Simulated scan of single mutants.
Amino acid sequence: MIELDEIDRRLVRALCADATQSAGALGRELGLSQPATWRRIRRLREAGVFGPRRRVDLDLEALGFGVMVFLGVKLATKGRVSLDDFERAVRAIPEVQTVQHVLGLFDYRLRVVAQDLPDFERILRRRIMTLPGVGNVEANVVLSEERLPGPL
Rank of each mutant, 00 (worst) to 15 (best):
L11E: 04
L110N: 13
I7A: 07
G27W: 04
D8M: 07
L131Y: 05
E121L: 02
M129R: 15
R10C: 01
T20R: 12
V12H: 03
R54Q: 12
N140S: 15
L32Y: 02
T130R: 15
L105F: 11
F65D: 01
L75V: 10
F50C: 11
G135I: 15
P151E: 11
A62W: 07
P118T: 06
N136Q: 13
M1K: 12
G24M: 05
V49H: 08
D119E: 13
V49P: 03
Q97S: 11
C16H: 10
K78R: 15
L103G: 10
I128F: 01
K78H: 15
V113Q: 12
V137H: 02
G51D: 06
E121N: 11
E29Y: 02
L83F: 12
A19H: 08
V96F: 04
L26E: 06
L117C: 10
G150L: 09
K78Q: 13
K74T: 13
E46Y: 04
V90F: 03
D84N: 08
R111W: 09
P94S: 11
K74Y: 06
I93T: 10
E95Y: 00
A76V: 14
L105D: 07
F86D: 12
I128V: 15
L32K: 07
R53G: 10
E146C: 13
D5G: 05
R10S: 06
L4T: 00
L131A: 13
L4M: 01
T37I: 13
L117F: 03
A23V: 04
R28P: 01
A23K: 05
R88P: 06
L4N: 06
E138W: 12
L30V: 04
E146W: 14
T77M: 00
V90R: 04
R147I: 14
G24F: 05
V142I: 15
I2T: 02
A17N: 09
V67L: 00
V49C: 07
G104Q: 12
V113C: 14
L32P: 05
G150E: 05
T20H: 08
